Simulated scan of single mutants.
Amino acid sequence: MTQTEKIKTRNGTQSKKARNILLKTIGAIVITIVLFLAIVYTVNIISSNSEQRRIESYGQHVSVDVKNMNVLIQGEGQETIVLLPGFGTAAPALDFKLLIDELSLFYKVVAVEPFGYGLSDGTEKERSTENIVGEVHEALQQLNINRYMLMGHSIAGIYGINYVNKYPNEVTAFVGIDSSVPTQPGMDVKFPLKKLEFLKKSGLLRMMTKLGADPYSSLSFVDKTVEQMKMISNKNMNNDTTLNEMDHISSNFIEAHDLTFPKDLPLLLFVQANNEVVKGWIPLHEGQIKDSVHGKVITMDGSHYLHHTKFKEIAENVRAFMKEAK
Rank of each mutant, 00 (worst) to 15 (best):
E126L: 09
V164G: 01
T4H: 10
D178P: 09
K108L: 06
H153G: 08
F106G: 09
W281P: 03
H257I: 14
G302H: 07
T32N: 06
K108V: 05
P85G: 02
N146G: 15
P182Y: 02
K279M: 12
G295A: 11
L284E: 01
I73K: 00
G157I: 03
I314N: 01
K24R: 12
I81C: 04
L267D: 02
N238L: 14
D264Q: 12
N239D: 07
P185Y: 02
L23M: 12
A139N: 02
E227S: 15
E113G: 04
V277A: 12
S180K: 01
F270P: 00
I158F: 08
Q74A: 07
A213M: 11
S250E: 13
T129C: 07
L72H: 10
A325M: 10
A18V: 14
R54T: 14
P215R: 05
M187N: 06
Q74N: 13
D258S: 09
E170K: 08
L83R: 00
N162R: 09
S202V: 13
M231I: 09
E276T: 15
R206P: 03
G186E: 07
S220G: 09
N44R: 05
G77H: 05
H308F: 15
V43H: 03
I55A: 04
D214K: 05
G295Y: 00
E276S: 15
N144F: 08
I232V: 13
H308D: 14
P85T: 05
F96I: 06
I45C: 10
I73P: 00
V164N: 01
K190D: 13
F87A: 12
V82N: 00
E5I: 12
S15V: 14
A156I: 04
L83G: 01
G280L: 04
A90I: 02
L98Y: 03
V278A: 09
K279R: 14
Q14L: 15
R319M: 14
K195S: 15
H294A: 08
D121G: 04
H294N: 13
F191L: 13
E5M: 12
I21N: 05
V277G: 11
K8R: 15
R53P: 02
G86A: 11
K230D: 12
N131Y: 11
E5K: 13
S154M: 03
H307T: 08
M246H: 01
